[in-house]
Design a protein around this nucleic acid. Structure first.
Lengths: 121, 121
DNA sequence: TAACTATATAACTAATTGGTGTTAAAATCA
DNA sequence: TGATTTTAACACCAATTAGTTATATAGTTA
């Protein structure tokens, strides 16, 4: 009955949700933590040592990642293990990586003739 | 010769670059602007009217999007038209959207038996 | 129970940033 | 030329947040 079937209206709620997810991935420290979890679950101390970040800082970042559903929390005795809950985040990172590489390569191609001495005069 | 071929080291530069790109997409206003550009190029005035955002605000957001290589700038007479330079951003948004939908559906499934009256006692 | 370890939380600072208002610059038209 | 329109640049304020320090909480062991 709706005429908006083909191009769905992006409600503010959806926009906010998507923006919020991207915001979680927009901090180098959090990406670093995610990279460390690529090899498997790690407890907080291991993440501390691997990243060199402060304890309270890591704890806060892990909470944010867990709330976003990107990592999951698994208490085991004294320590708490975290692991990737949804590997989609890596696909997103990979896509952005490719984007950045493409852009750098394109810039390199544009600069190449100048480096070869052509085009200055 | 390198032993790090399989799992590439994520240098701080790469991490910063990826984080920076995600940060550009982490603002609802910018996502709103991108959504308005889905239907084709638009000048600033058209974007103003479509989004309801302030002029200076839109100008700033467009600059950020252009610097990130997500939109491209095309002056035409008095006005300046912007258009999507790389549609990859939409694939990213779509992926995040699916993620959010999946999470809501999963939460719904978990809540369903409780709503049916089972599991309270 | 007390002592110890691992993690989380609270309070704080410093820096970043989204939004607004204003001004300036550039193109078009009278 | 002068007036108008369109966009960008600049200054400002309010709100958010990453990181740090100190403290609290929970699990473990003696």
């Amino acid at each position: 009955m709706s005429a908006e079937v083909m191009t769905p209206v992006m409600t503010p709620e959806v926009l906010n949700g998507v923006a919020e997810y991207f915001k979680v991935l927009s901090e180098p420290s959090r990406l670093q933590i995610l990279c460390e979890l690529r090899s498997g679950p790690k407890n907080v101390t291991e993440i501390l040592e691997a990243t060199g970040l402060g304890q309270a800082n890591v704890s806060k970042h892990l909470k944010i990642l867990a709330q976003a559903g990107i990592v999951s929390r698994h208490p085991k005795g004294v320590s708490v293990y975290y692991q990737i809950a949804n590997p989609t985040c890596f696909q997103l990172c990979e896509a952005v990586c490719n984007l950045l590489v493409e852009r750098l390569q394109q810039q390199a191609r544009q600069l190449e003739p100048l480096a070869a001495g052509k085009g200055w005069f």
